[in-house]
Design a protein around this nucleic acid. Structure first.
Lengths: 197, 197
DNA sequence: CCATAACCGGAGCGTTCACTCCGTTTGTTG
DNA sequence: CAACAAACGGAGTGAACGCTCCGGTTATGG
């Protein structure tokens, strides 16, 4: 009986390289979108492309790893929002963070728009968990009378992505400072989200 | 004294090919975005790539021609909206068309997001004319008390693009039928656009 | 300190893209 | 209808991309 999946700890330099690649790729995708080349990432990380592909056999694998990282961070955000006391401000703060999440990271935005969360089993699990938790948050807000009844968790994310896109447009046209452009249309959208009547 | 820019009328088949290329490219970019290859467009138009490049020396030139076409159509829409009688419904109908305009054409959306309207003098002129006319429409709506005061023409287009993006997200998640997805968040946005108080 | 396996870098491969070049075909004109 | 310029099409070019391969290097356990 050999040990089939012993998976001994990797060499120290290898582990360091893997972390550095993830770090650099995250930054590169955030600023330049997913079309940043693998060679460029390897160069910035100070490794050869061979090393990169040993850790992530395809570019898609690398992207998936980073997206999963972000999804886990996002799950934390949702949990913290669920723990908040006042329902109304909690929902508004949550929505702001959702817009910011979509606004700050070009790569993540492109990954979600490309349907990447449905391609991978792990990512899909994250997505489902996020949607379930978000649904709770939304139901509370609706029960408290601070959110329209005709919207579900998917709608909220779709709208957040839209506001982020509007913010990008505002930056492009010189209407807003990139630092706080995500807030430019927050007032409009929050007004639209309140119950009618 | 020779005639330096006589520009004699092109051959009949050449004119036909040029029109067919524009037609096919328009459809291809609308459905597939700007990354559709030039070879693919030539194939669908039933011409060689040489013929395509003789009419449009670069891919960018072809895109510019199509974008200009759409901008002229859009200028007509604005003029018609300005001619309408009732200010409130006119503005809402205009905003719906703006969302639809961004929703229906992937290529156009990408071109605008890529800042293409600023790269070319003709396109920039169209853009400026559109913004000026739209500003009139907006000022009337604001004067009639049906639109927030803190938004200008650029803002309205940024918001319309955002709603279109949200609609695409809704289609992706299976929330809406592609045929009328652009209407899914219209109620939310129009509520947000009304003056506060 | 040495043997060895794990790890490294980057040259090279196959593909795709925008774009060019040129021998052939075709519409036009007198 | 003939002769010519205009237009055609598609093979070919160079650059960029994701990815593979392998001879050299280095961390690590005994």
């Amino acid at each position: 009986m050999t040990e089939p999946a012993a998976a001994r700890r990797p060499r120290a330099d290898a582990a360091r390289n893997r972390e550095r690649i993830l770090e650099v790729a995250n930054e590169a995708f955030r600023e330049g979108g997913l079309e940043v080349s693998v060679a460029e990432i390897a160069r910035r990380a100070g490794v050869g492309s061979g090393t990169l592909f040993r850790n992530f056999p395809t570019k898609t694998d690398l992207i998936h790893a980073i997206v999963e990282m972000h999804m886990n961070q996002w799950l934390d955000v949702i949990e913290k929002s669920l723990a908040a006391e006042e329902v109304g401000p909690a929902f508004e703060a949550f929505f702001e963070r959702a817009v910011l999440f979509n606004y700050l990271d070009r790569g993540m935005l492109e990954a979600v728009k490309g349907g990447m969360l449905n391609d991978d089993a792990d990512l899909n699990a994250c997505k489902c968990e996020a949607l379930a938790s978000t649904a709770k948050l939304i139901e509370r807000a609706q029960a408290a009378g601070v959110l329209r009844q005709d919207l579900n968790a998917d709608d909220i994310y779709a709208l957040a992505a839209g506001v982020a896109e509007s913010a990008h447009a505002a930056v492009r046209e010189g209407l807003a400072d990139p630092k706080d452009a995500h807030m430019r249309y927050m007032g409009v959208m929050l007004a639209g989200l309140r119950p009618v009547g």
